[in-house]
Each structure stands twice: as C-alpha cells, then as structure tokens.
C-alpha cells in the first residue's frame, strides 16, 4: 500500500506552473501532436479547394499575370537587366520563390490573432498551427513551381539561352530554408501582434518593401559593387539567386552564401520559438 501511494506521488503527467524554463521548447509535445499537424494541413487544403472551383486555378493565373506585369513594367519599360536571361523566366523564377517565403511569413504572423477563438478553448501545442501553415503553403508553391517548370520547358524547347544545372539539387534545401525562415520570422511577428495589433498592417506593407530589397525583379549583378554586401545581408538573396542559378544557369552569387542563410534561419527560428512559447503561456489574458 505504501509503495503504491509513493508511486502515486511521483507520477504526475503534467505539472502546470506559472513559467517554464526558457530552454524548454516543448518540441516533444509538438511531435506527439504530429497527427494534428497533418490534419490541419489537409483541412487547409480541403477547405480552400472546396470553397472555390477557382482555388487551384488561381495559383495558375496569378504567377502568370504577375510575371507579365513585371515583364512589361520592369523589363520593357524600365529596361532593368535580367542577366541576359529571358525576362519572363527571370521574373517568374524570382516571383515563385518569393511567393512561398512571403506567404509563409505573412500567414504564420496571424497565428495568434486568427486562432484566438480556438486557443481560448482548448490546449494543443500552439506551434502546430504555424508549422501546419508552412506545410500547407507548399501545395500552392508546388502548383506555381509546376507553372514555372512548364514555361522553362517551353523556353528550352524554343532554344532559349538557359542551362539548368546540378544546382537544381539544392532545391529541397532552398525550400526548407525558406519554410523555416518564414516560420521563424512569422511567429516572432505573431507573438508581437498579441500586444500590437497594427503590426499586422506593417507586415503586409513591410513584405512589399522587403521584396524590393531582394533580387526578385533585378539580378544581384546589377547592384553596384559597394552595395552588394547589403543585398547579401538579406538571407533571402542567396535563395533567390541559387534558385535562378540552378534552373536558369546564370547568377553572380557564390552559393556558399547559402550557409549564411542557414545560420540566419536557425537563429531566427530559435528566437521565434522562444518568444512564441513565452507568449503562448498567457496570451489568452491579453486578447
């Protein structure tokens, strides 16, 4: 009997306390809810594509239209350099990559505000929401990538001056870095939006500016030498450039800068998770 009660005393499954240690990332908790993450990904997919017939088609039309606009404005009118690549492919490559990163960041930045209702009712690892968002955005990215590849093939067959090469193999790494960086920055913003709602507007606006600070509509090579370091300080720059290097074969970047992007991403992600975990504790008291 004694043994039994001693056992009882020590076998608590959960102990709720005001603060957890800051290094307690609760990633194990997140892992045990992996089925939830998949179900949320699947929910996003089903819900979006059930609502509108145009759902997937939208992802076909949008990149094409955006690329046409870019080609006309920046290529034909402003006559920006495209490293001698076909402008259409050049812009579409940049746009495809940028789209994934920015949607990851913007949609994860709404985690707390968009889910206040459900977060107020039931516990599950809050991190599963932004993680699932990043994964479900892959679906839209895949469609856009497909559109890009179709045009790439067309240009190849038409004999355009492009040469896809082995850097193509870096694609999974590029996607992973973008996903994690978008996630890290997004959850930092979402943690801050619990205190400052208008930060949300800043994000949408800031992402537009951010795009112009990234070689999406111009190649890195067209940036004056003395400003290149500034461009390279942007962790997305190597991703966009290596993507173009792999698919189109031309870029002035040293792919080693990807290591910088990776380090930056790791730092952002860690910071993000720490802040996020801190906020999730008492977030419900401030909405």
């Amino acid at each position: 009997m004694d043994l039994q009660s001693a056992d009882v005393q020590t076998s608590w499954d959960t102990i709720l306390r005001p603060q957890r240690a800051w290094w307690d990332l609760r990633l194990r908790d997140l892992w045990s809810y992996r089925d939830l993450i998949w179900l949320m990904v699947w929910r996003d997919f089903v819900a979006v594509y059930k609502q509108t017939v145009l759902g997937p088609i939208w992802h076909l039309i949008q990149p094409i239209l955006t690329t046409i606009v870019f080609t006309v404005i920046f290529g034909t009118i402003a006559k920006l350099s495209t490293d001698d690549l076909p402008p259409f492919l050049f812009y579409m490559a940049g746009n495809t990559v940028w789209f994934y990163f920015s949607t990851c960041l913007v949609s994860t930045s709404k985690t707390f505000t968009a889910n206040a209702g459900i977060f107020g009712k039931v516990y599950f690892p809050r991190l599963s929401v932004p993680v699932s968002i990043v994964i479900s955005n892959l679906i839209a990215f895949a469609i856009r990538l497909g559109v890009f590849l179709a045009f790439l093939l067309y240009y190849l067959l038409a004999g355009a001056k492009i040469n896809p090469n082995l850097w193509l193999l870096a694609l999974p790494a590029l996607i992973l870095i973008m996903a994690l960086l978008g996630l890290g920055m997004g959850i930092i913003v979402s943690s801050l939006t619990t205190k400052y709602r208008d930060l949300q507007h800043l994000v949408t606006f800031g992402m537009q500016l951010f795009m112009y600070a990234t070689p999406v509509i111009y190649p890195l090579s067209s940036v004056p030498e003395k400003w290149q370091w500034l461009m390279l300080a942007n962790p997305i720059t190597p991703i966009v450039e290596v993507f173009r290097l792999g698919f189109l074969g031309t870029s002035s970047i040293d792919p080693l800068y990807l290591l910088y992007s990776t380090g930056f991403t790791a730092a952002m992600l860690l910071t993000g998770i720490l802040i996020f975990n801190h906020v999730e504790n008492t977030f419900m008291d401030t909405v």
Partner: peptide, 22 residues
C-alpha cells in the same frame, strides 16, 4: 481555463495525472 491549459497560473501549481479533455 488553467486546468485545461488555456492560460498559465500566476503562482502556485497544478499537478495532473492522465489526459485532460475539456
């Protein structure tokens, strides 16, 4: 809300054995 882990307590502790569903 504290028991269902929606919000954290200000002080003190809650010890729980087993899975809670709210």
């Amino acid at each position: 809300k504290i028991l269902s882990r929606v919000t954290a307590p200000t002080s003190g502790a809650v010890k729980i054995k087993g899975r809670i569903a709210s």
